[in-house]
Nucleic acid binder design. Structure first.
Lengths: 235, 235
DNA sequence: CGGTCCGTTGACTCTAATCAACCTGGGTGG
DNA sequence: CCACCCAGGTTGATTAGAGTCAACGGACCG
């Protein structure tokens, strides 16, 4: 952890919540925040912990997960750069937050951050809009988890990841075959989709056999037939 | 639809968002709002519609649902009296809103309501807190939908409904056997839990056979063994 | 009295989970 | 340099649990 000298070097300054602040206002947050690096697989907060901090995610991918006592686990959300991390106003953390890749955070102590929120209506509104969007996304995923077949879940997941990759960091033209790296292992993918590793793997290989995607190696995925993939994703 | 003469006769005044407003401020909303009665099974808004209105729910139960083109449907949220209905700042309705019982709403045109929100930080904050709570609830349900067995889903659902009934309208002491009416049919229950009608029915009857609940008739449920029910709900 | 809706039950099917091997690539240590 | 090891991924065989299809019963309603 280190103090934030300056937000100027922040790669997500324009997309994160802080984008709503003037330079002067930013100074307030600046004094509050600390940069923190987290390693892959490191857990930032456990469900049930006291809710101490909020953060902006600067780089990397985080997951939110719920677990039962018997070991069953479900990923209930993924967080990407510029996303807001944490739950203001809650006394306890309700979902475990874990890094899926090395990640960098801009961390704020929760209660002081809540006070800053109160003083900056524009930022509070932006947060409200993001939480509303997250709620809509969570509800949409409820449909997929409850009613989707394994094939639909996997196809929809690859589409999501492709769309996200296309908006930054894609390796090819959006027109031709699109190649990108999944940030998740098979196991992590299965945890997101409510499947087992085996089922996730089988469905992915099936898409490959059907010439809808190619798997060039590592975690790379190439989408060969976007229309067919969309057809398999249905909802 | 009729103009709201006075909020004084509002049964949820203290629990709804408006609870954050002074009498004077309430007058602003008052001019904006209209009472609306909706009948059981009536749909207030369809997914994809222009997002015209928000509301407070005064009485009754609403559901939010997502549907696929092939007819599959999933209830992604339930709304109870004093809950806020709708999604500010969204251009389109993203989940169909339908009344599960006769219901009464206090309806506001969306954009004027958003302006009122901006002028009343306390109300905006209250909304933010509610949306955060709804997000947590949605994510928790994601776990249940994706990983829960039919038995766990049904047990958890009955516990939820019992808790809700206990906080108002229960028919017995919280100590002894607790009896309440489900506001939902088997089909609606199944739609919430991501099950079929038949599976929901079988699991409910199984709880009855196992002496954990009794079914006195109609939609009434009596919880005979709360501890056993909780054990079956697991997460 | 007939009809319809809701809930229940039974028989059967089918999808995805489970259990068990096995492969593969990358890293390590002899 | 090569043999080994190990995690992640894949594949196959089997099973369990919920879905599907079908029929039936009772309550309510006209």
């Amino acid at each position: 952890m280190e103090a934030i000298d300056i937000c100027a070097d922040c790669g997500v300054r324009d997309r994160a919540l802080c984008g709503s602040l003037s330079d002067a206002e930013l100074a307030t947050l600046n004094r509050l925040g600390r940069r923190r690096h987290v390693a892959r697989d490191e857990t930032i907060a456990w469900a049930g912990d006291d809710n101490i901090v909020c953060a902006n995610l600067l780089s990397g991918v985080l997951k939110l997960s719920a677990a039962a006592t018997d070991g069953r686990e479900q990923t209930v959300g993924l967080l990407y750069p510029a996303d807001f991390v944490g739950t203001p106003f809650a006394e306890q953390v309700d979902f475990t937050i874990t890094a899926l890749t090395d990640a960098e955070l801009c961390v704020f102590p929760r209660e002081p951050f809540e006070r800053v929120l109160g003083d900056h209506a524009a930022m509070e509104r932006l947060l409200l809009q993001r939480v509303l969007a997250a709620l809509g996304e969570a509800r949409g995923r409820m449909f997929s988890l409850a009613r989707g077949s394994a094939g639909e879940k996997v196809a929809g997941f690859l589409l999501d990841m492709a769309r996200r990759a296309a908006t930054s960091g894609c390796r090819a033209t959006p027109q031709g075959p699109l190649t990108f790296d999944l940030p998740l292992s098979r196991g992590e993918t299965a945890a997101v989709l409510g499947l087992t590793i085996e089922t996730a793997s089988r469905q992915i290989r099936k898409l490959e056999r059907d010439q809808i995607i190619a798997l060039p190696g590592g975690r790379a995925v190439t989408i060969l037939d976007m229309a067919a993939l969309e057809a398999r994703a249905q909802a």
